[in-house]
Simulated assay, not measured.
Amino acid sequence: MTINVLFAATEARWQDYRAPLTEAFREHDLDVSLKTDLPPEEVDYIVYAPNSAVQDFTPFTRCKAVLNLWAGVEGIVGNETLTMPLARMVDPALTRGMVEWVAGHVLRHHLEIDYFLARQQGEWCPRVPPLASERSVTILGLGELGTACGQTLADLGFPVTGWSRSPKRIEGIATVHGDDGLDAALAQAQILVLLLPKTPETENVLDADALARLPRGAAVINPGRGHLIDDEALLAALDAGTVGHATLDVFREEPLPADHPFWSHERVTVTPHIASETRPASASRVIAENIRRGEEGEPLLHLVDRDRGY
């Protein structure tokens, strides 16, 4: 029997995903009709991006699951019309891309590369950075991405502390949780990496009080969500020297407005939301596997907990 899959995303995404999804369905031996326009009552699965025109899920009476193309689900999880299972994207290539970006910028700050780049004027500056074992890294958020980044950094020799809302045990990472754990994690964070989801509980988790708990001169790296940081508090901490440098890949408004102070601040590095992107080929295989599971009565992968918001 043919499985009807609605691709509900932008035209640009359709052009990127049409061929990889078709190939992934073939590899999984799925008989799929993949279209961008199907009668709602005939749709079995929705491959979805939150900026899609589909915002009311009520007409999709036969739909078995909504499969998000993005890792973040804050743009859809609160939709009261979405009553069917919702799966977020956990793409191995997305995880790998995040690991590489985070490791690269942690090493950049650790090796003080910016310091040396600023002194390429014939000035000999024999300033030796500490070893990784002498530079503590804290990661806020121990989901798929935070765990992978933390373990990679631990393998490089950094002492890594990871914070999460609930208790976790992860090989190679010293884990803490709760409010007391957050205070302890911040207090030792010479390099702080933010990889929390966007939820009401994580809004402005890095506010003025949290920034004040960091060791003086700490580096802040945010490839997670722009809403995790109080921008004004961060700028004040940078000006005061409490924070030595901030490398930011995500922002409250994207693209980052041309007149935003982050662009011109000498202690801020801006990257244009490139830390990790879903790759169509590998993401399509994740989607196809979930549809196969749905059709064979197996549990879907990466289901979203509506109460927690991710």
Rank of each mutant, 00 (worst) to 15 (best):
G172Y: 06
G294S: 03
P39S: 00
V304Y: 09
E144I: 03
A218C: 10
V160N: 06
D180K: 01
V66K: 09
I221W: 14
L214F: 12
L182V: 04
A246S: 06
V243Q: 09
V243L: 07
P126G: 01
F7S: 00
I3S: 01
T22S: 11
A12M: 00
G297R: 01
L142F: 05
V102E: 10
D230T: 03
A185D: 09
E203S: 06
K198V: 01
T242D: 15
L145N: 11
A275K: 05
H273N: 08
G72T: 08
A174P: 05
V90T: 10
T147E: 13
H302C: 03
L214I: 06
L303D: 00
A240P: 15
T36V: 00
K35F: 01
H110K: 03
A212D: 15
P130H: 04
L248E: 05
V128P: 04
H109D: 07
T271H: 14
F251W: 11
G309T: 07
L131F: 10
G224C: 04
H109F: 09
I113S: 02
R96H: 15
P159I: 03
V43E: 10
G141Q: 02
P223F: 12
Q190V: 02
R88G: 08
F25H: 01
D307S: 11
R216M: 04
T83R: 14
P130T: 01
W124D: 02
A208H: 15
L82V: 11
S282M: 02
Q121G: 12
P40Y: 03
